[in-house]
Write a protein that binds this DNA or RNA. Structure first.
Lengths: 261, 261
DNA sequence: CGTCCCCTTGAGCAGAATCAAGCCTAGTGG
DNA sequence: CCACTAGGCTTGATTCTGCTCAAGGGGACG
């Protein structure tokens, strides 16, 4: 359980040159973001035209508030955010951990005010697109419309995965899955490279994500630490034994569970 | 807790004239189904052209098998189906209870083989559309493409609701919610009218839907029965005190939980 | 009549929640 | 420079919701 706090850490928040109040001016580096990487020039240009602003928000700020129709579409550029829903009595379920490159608010294109809120888990920067204009896309650039739909379907599939995790897995399995999955996502997006990365999520938030309470979450993390599998320290995760962690998770990132029957 | 087994029961399976092997021949009564009710003639005609078949399946049959790409889109016409995912060790989570009018397999339009299977919970009839042809829709009939996307987003929202229910609610709240929600859906689709309807779901399936085990599910149902709130008997549900049931559920159908911060 | 499937119930256990403190660290202000 | 505070982490003790194991009942169907 030795800790090296030195050494370079991959900044999983997505901006390697984030120094101060953001150098973003008028050009949003959309193309650096996974969702847009294989866009045709025409598509990219269209998206650019829909862009309203590139904004900054501090940790804790609310980007989207439940019930408030704002007609915007967001693409997270750097930092992490949390999409969550509340019960009338205050219980909270985090629906999605939003990573750089994720698009949120697609539903505001077609549905009325969202049932969720989105909150910055760390300082974030993000693009704002005008949802009303996005609506035209379906008529003018069908290929782009297809992309948006696909985006929704991919997110839906991930949501279903979270549902089976929460509905059918033990506390340890849930926690293990989260780290395998997030590690997989960050790696796929080239935001990290290795088993050490920034993780700006509190234990309370982690608990609200996997449907446990914070104390039990803490104990599970302790057990993982004691077994030398992974460690969290001051918002940084180090996975010491990736194989073991993957073993604990009911299934690995992206492979999902296929055949069987 | 008095039971009247007599009296007419709304057949929530969706076909009031289902007598034997189906009178469906070449015309699929799509327009009778909620998802299609406000289609323009042009849209409806386009959908009709995509139709491959109108099929029948018996209770227990598998309509879609996990991992098998079949290139079809289904709209359930009568009966209920269950969309579920399995863990490698056999644990099951039912993702969606598919009711008449629901469309499934949208993801096969854009993604590779599904991660879920779909199984008939009762005898069912359904339409089969050719997914490959549906792809063209985005180019040729943008309005229809938008509809499909909206369909996906509505389902995603419902999925998020199930996630918070499973992740944050007690056994009783989960069960109560399911019946309030299904009652709401059936009513909205004009499949029932009142508090008595067919419910072709076993307790094991109900358990797999709400993330409980069957024994505990049974006990919760018993308690609801003992309190005179609702009764299940030979696949028929009677809600004796709708208000009380709604009270138990963390939120009612369709109203969801809005404000609160 | 036997079998299969589903429902029901009891007893005992355990995983996770709750209650109640204490600790550590970063940030603030005197 | 240090006291104070707030937010987040950690731990122990205790409770309880929900799970497991075990068994029996009842209806439909061949």
């Amino acid at each position: 359980m030795r800790e090296r706090d030195a050494g370079s850490i991959a900044d999983s928040t997505g901006s390697s040159q984030r120094n101060g109040l953001s150098p973003w001016c008028d050009v949003c580096p959309l193309r650096a973001v996974s969702a847009f990487e294989d866009f045709s020039p025409e598509e990219l240009e269209t998206m650019m035209r829909l862009k309203v602003a590139h904004r900054y928000a501090a940790r804790g700020d609310t980007l989207i508030r439940c019930g408030e129709m704002n007609g915007h579409l967001y693409t997270l550029f750097s930092g992490w955010a949390l999409r969550h829903r509340l019960l009338p009595d205050g219980r909270r379920q985090i629906i999605q951990v939003v990573l750089p490159g994720d698009t949120i608010g697609l539903d505001s294109l077609f549905l009325d005010g969202p049932l969720y809120s989105v909150q910055a888990a760390s300082d974030v920067t993000f693009c704002v697109l005008d949802a009303r204009l996005v609506g035209d896309i379906f008529g003018r650039l069908p290929q782009l419309g297809r992309r948006l739909t696909k985006l929704a379907l991919v997110e839906q599939r991930a949501l279903e995965t979270r549902l089976i995790i929460v509905g059918r897995c033990s506390a340890e399995e849930r926690i293990a899955f989260v780290f395998v999955e997030i590690h997989g996502q960050l790696t796929k997006r080239r935001l990290i490279n290795g088993n050490y990365f920034r993780f700006p999520i509190t234990q309370q938030q982690l608990a609200d994500f996997v449907g446990l309470n914070i104390i039990h979450t803490n104990r599970v993390l302790r057990r993982l630490r004691e077994r030398g599998i992974m460690t969290i320290q001051s918002q940084k995760v180090r996975i010491h034994q990736f194989a073991a962690l993957r073993q604990l998770a009911p299934f690995g990132a992206n492979e999902e569970c296929l055949p069987l029957l």
